[in-house]
Design a protein around this nucleic acid. Structure first.
Lengths: 239, 239
DNA sequence: ATTTGTGAAGGGTTTCACAGCG
DNA sequence: CGCTGTGAAACCCTTCACAAAT
């Protein structure tokens, strides 16, 4: 029974690492489009996105041949092709569970509504918050979770509850047919194989920074310092 | 001029991929410690952290040989060793710039204060918010940024401003000597090579989920489904 | 002349499988 | 006998360098 190498990237043909960068390209292209720029070279787009130009070209090559040699990429067309590859041509209704500080921030986050997503429901366990309206959406009680998910045909759930509640909420979401979960609670969620979970953990990111910070102060006099450019100064349509 | 392969991982000996997972192990070990469990096997710890046991052992082997063959790892001791490797034995003061919804959430986030970090300052551009107290810390105005950073000797900055302000704030932080930045604003920040930037982008995470979501509904009847366990159900000291 | 698209080379990461130690 | 620690293999991702196209 030969197990396939990687479920996600094998099914789609687009490597995971590339998929993770496409949204960045999309955002940068958006800025270029607003500037009225008709085309970009791989060099220009790569600089604005903070990656190497070869990597960018390889990434885009996985979607097809959408550039013109000697010219570059048509901005509008590339936006469309990347959007299509990411599946953003359809609209996804999402539910946010847990309307504490973080859930509140997420509900007001502009990036959610803009590209392919729509916050269809806010849910909280505190009955006193039911009825409250945030970002134009009424908060409903956790008891109604199953009803709400089915009502809006939600397949993406955002968990912004305390850690203690996260697994339980996740189980209920999965039971209603949710197949993608974005988890902000500091717990490892257990889910069936058919469900995708992505985790955002503020404290983990800080700890990774701390590690590098520590190394900096430790090695301030070792071997002759060789500069390794990682992110290079770029000036894009800044905003 | 031979460029070294990778700045971070070469200086420390610990691969980046491993560093990114150590905080997860640390959290899971914390739960085990509270349960009073004296030792864990690589299998047990790996299951709770959602990774394979071989990967976990290889990760830990980069820190040294802290396990006992035939027994497992001493929970308390491993917590200490991972903390030390990550540089969490010292305390890092951090500043949060931008106290909108997200900054507010971050200020109240328990994970910040607990492991090695302390929120030393909250800064906002709105003069009307100056003086307001959140999570026991008084908000100060952006004009005072330089003073505050130096006063508290802050080397880690958290940017939670709108995208338009992020690069400017970042430049000012770097000018004051901040060497690590955690960026929540949806922009690619340009910094000198000596500064580390990590980015958390809510909308990007959602777009990655959308990609996988799309592939699911597309291939619901292709080849005979082969199960690829990704995250397996585990029951740890749940909380 | 310029810039894309891509084989091929080079690293890094994960997985395997087992030797070695308790 | 159980479990860790680790070479070796397999895999994935990145980088290089250039042929192909406009």
């Amino acid at each position: 029974m030969p197990v396939p190498r990687d479920a996600a990237s094998r099914r789609s043909g687009i490597p995971d690492a590339t998929v993770a960068r496409l949204p960045i390209y999309l955002r940068v292209l958006g800025a270029f489009a607003e500037s009225g720029l008709p085309t970009v070279s791989s060099e220009g787009l790569a600089a604005a996105a903070g990656v190497g130009s070869a990597k960018l070209r390889k990434d885009l090559s996985h979607l097809g041949s959408y550039g013109t040699r000697g010219v570059g990429y048509d901005v509008e067309y590339l936006v469309y092709q990347i959007s299509r590859a990411l599946g953003l041509t359809q609209h996804y209704p999402v539910a946010i569970i847990g309307v504490g500080n973080l859930g509140h921030a997420l509900a007001n986050y502009a990036g959610f509504g803009t590209r392919g997503f729509q916050i269809a429901a806010l849910v909280d366990a505190d009955p006193r918050r039911a009825g409250e309206v945030i970002a134009g959406i009424e908060i409903r009680h956790l008891d109604e979770l199953e009803t709400i998910i089915k009502e809006h045909e939600i397949s993406i759930g955002v968990i912004a509850t305390p850690a203690a509640a996260a697994q339980d909420v996740c189980d209920r979401l999965v039971a209603c047919g949710v197949t993608s979960v974005l988890n902000f609670a500091p717990t490892v969620l257990a889910v069936p194989e058919s469900v995708d979970v992505r985790k955002v953990d503020l404290s983990i990111e800080l700890q990774i920074l701390a590690f590098h910070e520590q190394r900096k102060s430790a090695g301030l006099h070792g071997e002759p310092g060789v500069a390794v450019p990682d992110v290079v100064r770029t000036s894009v349509a800044s905003a």
